[in-house]
Design a protein around this nucleic acid. Structure first.
Lengths: 113, 113
DNA sequence: TTTTATACTATCATTTTTGATAGTTATTGT
DNA sequence: ACAATAACTATCAAAAATGATAGTATAAAA
């Protein structure tokens, strides 16, 4: 049994999935892995996610210490930038492996458009 | 946009997550990555999953061509073995990266028992 | 002055995932 | 004769994740 921040996991793989599981987290991390992005830039990169879901996922990732949120203005229209924390950067190899498999698999059996 | 087997994904990472996302799939693959295991052996390795869920996940993984199910007897009590297909084996580096991150993270910040 | 833009939040609804529990079949061990 | 075993499935229920839509504040641009 693995324990981290009060949560228990039956194996090392499930612990990781507790952080990056779900439909959108890896997609967000994939886009943040090399760049800092603003909220609306993320939306453009991921047009199929709803605002509510994107917001929730960003908040969770921030609470988990994986990304950081930097605010540049105090009054609307806000400027906010999202980027990986040092801890979040340790996930880059994982995200990259996930992305690479997607690319390889689509090359063999799927299509991109 | 990525398309594979009729499903669409907004990015390469989400395609992969379509295959290994969810609470249990990577755990199953983690245990199958080196060994062939019988149904009850999987249950023992993953005591916190319910039978129904384990069954459903195994079926999905099989339908996705990631694992194969080999039956050795025709009448109960059955002997059934699960193992990775060749396609499933291409996921080993991904699963390993996920597992490694879990181990590293728990070493730094969590506990094992 | 009306519109546009940013980065959201709020409310409600739906879908997806996961869990709890009990039951099935036929063979082998006691 | 009876319980144990293997690998499930069935039914019902609950929880978690995701989606649709509209609304907020304020400043700068048209």
């Amino acid at each position: 049994m693995y324990k981290l921040k009060g949560k228990e996991y039956p194996c090392c793989a499930s612990l990781t999935m507790g952080y990056i599981g779900g439909k959108w987290k890896t997609v967000i991390l994939y886009h943040l892995r090399k760049d800092t992005l603003r909220y609306n830039e993320l939306r453009k990169q991921i047009p199929t996610v709803t605002e509510r879901t994107l917001s929730l996922q960003l908040k969770t990732l921030e609470e988990d210490g994986i990304i950081k949120r930097k605010v540049y203005t105090s009054k609307p229209p806000l400027k906010v930038e999202y980027s990986l924390t040092d801890f979040g950067k340790t996930l880059i190899p994982v995200v990259q492996a996930i992305a690479d498999w997607g690319v390889a698999t689509v090359k063999e059996k799927g299509e991109v458009f």
